[in-house]
């Protein structure tokens, strides 16, 4: 295989040892990331399925109150026991995933889209636009987050969409900063100058040279931020400001379980553990992916 190829190219260039780098990148994925990474991915897939298919899963009604069965320990009938009003904890966890997943995904998407766009444009065009955007961003950042969140929720309302948008709005500044910082360094790189010297328009430079290089670090950051948002939604629910009861959310389950901590800790513990595992998985996956992007940029 190597024989004819090297013979064919000796006249012009010698075949250069570029294939070594290529092989390193083509190793099978499973071996590269390790078992912990795949466990984390599996957990996230399970949570995702729960959120998507909750009403078709054979888990019972999460809102059915049965005072006779309150605070039961885990059993065959109630896998994870029941809470203070006799609702099935397992069913509520499965249905509660929907709020966490929808809020975190929507908030991240909204924040990243708006914040990322503003940040990339600020970093690329500089000048007055950058000054104004970054000033606004700094003002939002300087405001105590939870207070602003409470004020906005009180004003906008407590529907799923409203909460997702409010949390997304609050994360705009961080994405804007990350995007701007990355844009500043990418825009100085020579390939942007090279594209300019080939006659590319500014819009073209922004969209096809700078943006693809900024999106990767932004995505890696977003994965970690998703975990933060799940916690944030939990805090809101704990304060009674997330989606209105009786819709189950992990945060409100913990808040409700708090009353029975001394006698029946499982009511608060199960949602807390689920939330913990979810956030941990997101961080693990996000970290691993970010490492991969970094390695790749270092290679280049």
């Amino acid at each position: 295989m190597a024989q004819p190829e090297s013979a064919a190219v000796t006249a012009e260039p010698r075949a250069e040892p570029g294939s070594g780098a290529g092989e390193r990148h083509q190793r099978p994925g499973a071996a590269r990331y390790g078992i912990v990474f795949w466990l984390a991915v599996a957990w996230l897939v399970i949570i995702g399925c729960c959120a998507a298919f909750a009403q078709w899963l054979p888990v019972g009604d999460p809102e059915e109150i049965n005072v006779r069965d309150m605070l039961l320990a885990p059993s065959a009938e109630h896998l994870l026991g029941t809470d203070g009003t006799g609702r099935d904890v397992f069913a509520r966890l499965v249905h509660g995933a929907r709020v966490s997943v929808v809020v975190s995904l929507a908030a991240v998407a909204f924040g990243m889209l708006v914040g990322g766009t503003l940040g990339i444009m600020a970093g690329f065009f500089r000048g007055r636009f950058e000054t104004v955007v970054m000033a606004v961003v700094d003002v939002i950042l300087a405001f105590p987050g939870l207070v602003l969140l409470l004020a906005l929720v009180a004003y906008v309302g407590q529907s799923l969409t409203a909460i997702a948008l409010v949390i997304g709005f609050l994360s705009i500044p961080i994405y804007a900063r990350v995007a701007r910082a990355n844009t500043l360094s990418v825009a100085e790189r020579e390939f942007v100058l090279a594209a300019r010297a080939m006659g590319a328009k500014r819009r073209r430079l922004l969209v096809s040279e700078v943006a693809p290089n900024v999106v990767l670090p932004l995505l890696a950051y977003a994965l970690v931020a998703t975990g933060v948002i799940i916690i944030l939604e939990g805090s809101l629910a704990f304060l009674g400001l997330s989606v209105q009861p009786p819709t189950p959310t992990w945060g409100s389950m913990i808040a409700e379980g708090k009353r029975h901590l001394d006698t029946d800790p499982h009511v608060a513990a199960f949602p807390a553990v689920v939330m913990f595992l979810t956030v941990l998985s997101l961080n693990l996956v996000g970290d691993r992916l970010r490492n991969r992007f970094d390695v790749r940029e270092a290679n280049v």
Partner: peptide, 27 residues
């Protein structure tokens, strides 16, 4: 710039020193 763009690439082109940085890594 708008006038220069008609020359860049078509009349004038440049090869930079470091091919590690003058190609876009993600394309």
């Amino acid at each position: 710039r708008s006038e220069m763009r008609k020359l860049w690439g078509l009349e004038l082109a440049i090869v930079f020193q470091d091919p590690m940085t003058s190609l876009n890594p993600v394309i």
